[in-house]
C-alpha cells in the first residue's frame, strides 16, 4: 500500500514561484527531490537510534569478550571467549534459559487468549459509550505502579490471601510463590499491552466484511478463522512482542512472587548490578538478544512485521 517514491513528483503540480520566500522555494525543492525529503525525515531518528541504541548494543557485545578482575572490579580489555563459552556450556544458563522462555511463552499465550474475546467484545459488540468506558477500564491499571501491583499479587497469593479465600470453597489452593505465581503476575501486568493492539486491529476490520462473509454462508467460526484472524494477525503479533519480551527480561516480579526461582533477567542483574561482572552479564544478555531476534525473524516470515 505504499507509494513509489519516484512517482509523485510528476503528478504534483509545479507551483510557480510567485512569492519567492525561502520556505516556498524549499518546499518546491523538496517536492522535486523525494530522496532529500526522505533523508530529512529519517536523518534525525536514525541518528538517534543508530548512535544511542545500536552503538550501545554493539559496545555491550564487545564487552562480553573482555574479563573483569574479581577483586578490584576493573574491566581488563583482554580478548577472551571464556564468558561466551561459560554461558553456552553452563548447565545453569541452559536451565534458566529454558525456564525463562517457557514462562515468557506461557504468559504470551495466556494474554492473547484472554485479550481476544475482550478485544472482540469491545470492538464489535459493545456500544460506542461502553466501548469508551471499557478502554478506560483497561488503561487505568497501567497507572498503578508495576511494583505496587506485583506486591499486591504477593498479598493475593499468600497463604490465607484472597486467592485462597476465593478458591477454597471449590477445593482449590493458592499456588503459593513460584513459577505459577510468576506467570499469573506477569500475565496480569502485561495484559493491557496485549489487549490494546488487538482491539485496535479488530476495530479496523470493517463490519461489512463480516456481514459479507455471513451472507456468503460463512458460519461464525469460519468467519472468525478465515476473515477476522488473518486481518488481526499483525496486531496479535504486535501484542505478543510486548508480553514476550517484557517477560523475557523481567527480574523483579520473579523476585517478589517467584519463590526461589530465578530467570535470565536475574542472572544478568546479579552479574552487573551485584557481582559487577559486566562482561559475563553481557554474555548472558546475548541469550535474550538471540531469542528475540529469532522470534522477530520468525514473525517476519509471516509478513506480520511489515504491517505492524
Amino acid at each position: 500500500m505504499t507509494v513509489d517514491a519516484s512517482a509523485p513528483p510528476t503528478r504534483r503540480a509545479v507551483v510557480p514561484p510567485q512569492r519567492g520566500s525561502i520556505a516556498r522555494r524549499g518546499s518546491v525543492f523538496l517536492s522535486r527531490h523525494p530522496r532529500v525529503r526522505l533523508s530529512l525525515l529519517l536523518g534525525a531518528p536514525l541518528f538517534w537510534l543508530g548512535l544511542v541504541y545500536i552503538a550501545a548494543l554493539a559496545a555491550l557485545l564487545i564487552t562480553a569478550l573482555w574479563t573483569v578482575d574479581s577483586f578490584t572490579g576493573q574491566i581488563s580489555q583482554t580478548w577472551t571467549l571464556d564468558n561466551i563459552v561459560a554461558v553456552l556450556t553452563g548447565s545453569l544458563y541452559q536451565t534458566v534459559t529454558l525456564r525463562t522462555v517457557g514462562v515468557a511463552l506461557l504468559v504470551t499465550i495466556i494474554d492473547i487468549l484472554i485479550a481476544l474475546p475482550i478485544a472482540f467484545y469491545m470492538a464489535k459488540v459493545a456500544s460506542p459509550r461502553a466501548q469508551r468506558i471499557l478502554v478506560i477500564a483497561i488503561l487505568m491499571p497501567l497507572w498503578a505502579s508495576y511494583l505496587v501491583k506485583a506486591y499486591a499479587w504477593r498479598s493475593v497469593l499468600s497463604q490465607g490471601g484472597i486467592f485462597e479465600w476465593l478458591v477454597s470453597p471449590f477445593g482449590g489452593h493458592s499456588p503459593g510463590y513460584g513459577l505459577p505465581a510468576t506467570i499469573i503476575t506477569l500475565s496480569y501486568l502485561w495484559l493491557p499491552y496485549v489487549i490494546l493492539p488487538i482491539y485496535a486491529g479488530l476495530e479496523r476490520v470493517p463490519d461489512s466484511l463480516m456481514e459479507a462473509s455471513a451472507d456468503l454462508g460463512g458460519g461464525t467460526w469460519s468467519t472468525l478463522r478465515l476473515v477476522v484472524l488473518p486481518m488481526i494477525w499483525p496486531a496479535i503479533i504486535a501484542g505478543s512482542i510486548f508480553s514476550f519480551s517484557l517477560s523475557l527480561g523481567d527480574y523483579i516480579t520473579v523476585n517478589i512472587v517467584g519463590g526461589a526461582n530465578q530467570m535470565l533477567g536475574n542472572l544478568v542483574y546479579t552479574n552487573v548490578g551485584a557481582a559487577n561482572n559486566l562482561p559475563l552479564a553481557a554474555a548472558i544478555a546475548l541469550i535474550p538478544i538471540l531469542i528475540i531476534f529469532a522470534y522477530l525473524a520468525a514473525v517476519r516470515r509471516t509478513g506480520a512485521l511489515n504491517n505492524l
Binding site: 552487573v272 548490578g273 559487577n276
Partner: peptide
C-alpha cells in the same frame, strides 16, 4: 554488591 558497583 550494588553498592560496590555504584561506587565505581
Amino acid at each position: 554488591d550494588e553498592a560496590f558497583s555504584l561506587m565505581k
